[in-house]
Amino acid sequence: MAFTREFIKGLGIEGDNLEKIMTEYGKSHTESAELQKKVEDLTSQNETLTGQIKERDGQLKTLSKSVGDNEELKTQIKSLQDSNKQTATEYQAKLAEQSKNFKIDSALRDAKARNPKAVKALLDLEKVSVDGDNLVGFKDQLEAVKKDNDYMFESGKPNESAKQGVKVVTGGNPGGNGGSEPSIVQRIAQRMTGGE
C-alpha cells in the first residue's frame, strides 16, 4: 500500500509532521528501489555465469569425447602442428621476399635508375638471391640493362636542364634572418642543382 499525502492528511496529520513523514517515506522508497536494482543486477550476473558454466561443461564433454579416442586426438594435434609449420614457412618466405625486394630497390636507387620499377621489369628476379646483405646474380644483370638502356639511368655528368637550375624569385624576408643564411627556398634550389 502506498502512502500518499492525501491519505496521511486524512489521518489528521498536517504541517511539519506531514512533511517529515513524507520525507522518511521517500527515503525508504528510494532505498527499496536501490535494493531492487541490486537484486536485478545480481540476478543478471548469476544468469550470465550460469550460461558460461554450461558452455564450459559442453566444451569439456566435447574434449572428453575426443580424449576417448586417443588416436583421433593425436591426429588432430598433428594436423594443427603441420598447419602451423606451413604458416610459419610461408611467413618466412614472405619476409625473405620483402627483404629481397627492398635490397633490389635500394640497389636500383644507388645505381641512379630514373624509374626503378621499369628497370626492375627488365631484370630476371628469379635468378637473384640474397646472401646476407649481398644480392647474388644482380650486379651482372644490372650492368647488362645499363649497357642496353643507359637512358634509364642518371649519368654522372649533369645534363643541360640540370645546368640551367631552378630560378627562384623571392620577395620579402622568407628566411627571417636578415639575409645571413639562405632561405628554405634557396636551400631547396641548391640541392636540386647539386650545389649542396
Rank of each mutant, 00 (worst) to 15 (best):
M1K: 11
A2R: 02
G10W: 01
I13L: 13
N17V: 05
L18G: 01
I21D: 08
I21Y: 02
T23K: 11
G26W: 01
G26C: 04
T30M: 09
K37A: 11
K38V: 04
N46G: 07
T48S: 00
Q52W: 07
I53T: 07
S64Y: 13
K65D: 02
L73P: 02
T75V: 13
D82A: 06
K85Y: 02
T87S: 06
T89P: 13
E90D: 12
Q92H: 09
A93H: 10
A93R: 09
K94P: 05
S99Q: 09
N101G: 09
F102H: 00
K103D: 12
D105N: 02
S106I: 11
A107M: 10
A111I: 06
A111Y: 05
R114G: 05
P116A: 14
K120T: 11
K120I: 15
D124C: 14
L125D: 05
E126F: 11
D131R: 05
G132W: 00
N134C: 10
G137Q: 08
V145M: 02
K147M: 02
M152A: 08
M152D: 04
S161R: 14
A162F: 15
K167A: 08
G172P: 06
P174E: 12
G179W: 14
S180V: 07
I184N: 13
R187F: 07
I188R: 01
M192E: 08
T193M: 15
G194D: 06
E196H: 03
